[in-house]
Design a protein around this nucleic acid. Structure first.
Lengths: 262, 262
DNA sequence: CAGCACGTTCGCCACAGGTGAACGGATAAA
DNA sequence: TTTATCCGTTCACCTGTGGCGAACGTGCTG
């Protein structure tokens, strides 16, 4: 059953406020260039200097950008705002101790991820004593199709939601093992839903394998997912297939309980 | 020597982009209300519903806000942006291990603060095993006049800068010990500059005392400050007056060195 | 001292954004 | 079931403002 109507999910506002769009483009440029002057940003965005100037001055006035000499930088206001966003619901606070004991028990890198705008956002990453040294920081965004965490979330979303996500972000290849066929992904999702556990066998980063389980709300919809990541040398056999899944499931269960009664 | 020209520091952009201003007001309202619908925000800001609607939709389209049902929330994009802002220079990375050993040695709460827009922003807060349990999180913003950290920074800024800051933010009373007279503050700053150490004796939070030293750049201007905070019962006598200052100074020195040669 | 590159200011004009009123859907009350 | 209310959402009008290019001024560099 083909659905020819492209589900547009990167949904456009009906009457978007253009100036706000460009303000954020300016901000993102500032980040990409790691700080920049008026001209640099103007060139980058192909906008008149004066417009960029006004935007930068406005952003500075609002204290979201800092000006040092004639260079502008992303300001620390966002630090506050970001931490607020993370702690808005109790998920982070509740899950954190569980993640820490998981990291202790397994020695690996343990992660907590939520979905936002069709991508995965790491809310928390805790390293065990043998944890792999991959770039791993809170706030990172990843595709959902190539991670165990993402698949655990997708597996418990409606099919229309899955289609939306795939339409919006596609299924970019990240390693030679990345699943890039929607049908194949959906088969995987069915299996994950049945089994309750998702795996990533070097699908996002060569040599890295993950196991993940979802944290489900009472309505059955996914709130988040937690995972253990490690080098493929340690992530195999019984440990991968049953020991880690059990640990994760029990942790997910504890988090779920603490979430509902708090 | 009075300077009657009011140094305007909360400087206004010459041609501010109004829509961007309101966009951020909307965002801040969303935060204040801890998530809200169109009407709630519109009432709060006294703006037409339709305008607020367009702003919210735009912010959502840009993925800086999430919409759940008909409520909008501050999005997790800021988490990423905030962490980026913190790590833009090497200060945080460089100072962190030093803060950790300070926390170990002292058992107290150890802090790293930088100035931004005339306020102090905590970049990092590490708790020792006896650390007081005050609300203390990264990203928090504080006045400069009522903290040891802030005074350490101000003491090494030009007098005109100090005036700018005081003009912009005033010297609000936080406890009965807060310094609220500019002249008195400046006397304190002179002393701090001479001695190299700043103190806060219950000036921001009753019962809490801090010692701070600045981290100075080669040009003599303050890059940041680090401090130890503890309950007044433990923050007195020789420990307060000489032991902690020494520890702090040596840590600041290490950070300074590692900053310049890295 | 000339030349350049950059931030900043200025004034014009078009159109984007603010506005209020009207629509439609959901929920609650009668 | 019907009615009333409350939201979010759409629409079309009109004005204000944000985008724009050119001009200005300043700090480098050769």
């Amino acid at each position: 059953m083909e659905n020819n109507i492209v589900l547009c999910m990167g949904k456009q506002a009906s009457n978007p406020v253009r100036s706000v769009e460009t303000a954020f483009e300016v901000l993102e440029t500032l980040r990409r260039l790691d700080g920049a002057g008026v001209t640099a940003v103007a060139n980058e965005l192909d906008l008149p200097k004066s417009s960029v100037y006004n935007h930068l001055e406005t952003l500075e006035q609002e204290e979201y950008v800092v000006k040092q000499g004639s260079e502008y930088y992303v300001g620390l206001r966002f630090l506050d705002l970001g931490r607020y966003a993370r702690q808005r619901d109790d998920l982070y606070e509740t899950a954190r101790p569980e993640l820490e004991s998981l990291a202790d028990e397994t020695g690996e890198l343990v992660n907590l991820l939520v979905e936002e705008h069709g991508q995965g956002v790491y809310l928390c990453r805790v390293r065990g004593d043998k944890a792999v040294n991959v770039a791993a920081s809170t706030g990172n965004r990843v595709y959902l199709h190539s991670t165990a965490l993402g698949k655990a979330v997708l597996a418990h979303s409606s099919e229309s939601r899955v289609d939306e996500v795939l339409n919006r972000h596609g299924m970019p290849t990240e390693t030679e093992r990345t699943t890039t066929d929607p049908a194949e992904l959906k088969d995987q999702l069915d299996e994950i839903r049945e089994r309750g556990v998702a795996f990533d066998r070097e699908e996002r980063i060569a040599g890295l394998c993950c196991v993940a389980v979802p944290i489900l709300g009472d309505d059955g919809r996914p709130i988040a997912a937690i995972s253990v990541s490690g080098p493929k040398s340690r992530m195999k056999g019984e440990r991968l297939e049953s020991k880690l899944p059990e640990l994760l499931e029990s942790a997910a269960n504890v988090v779920k309980l603490n979430l509902t009664y708090s």
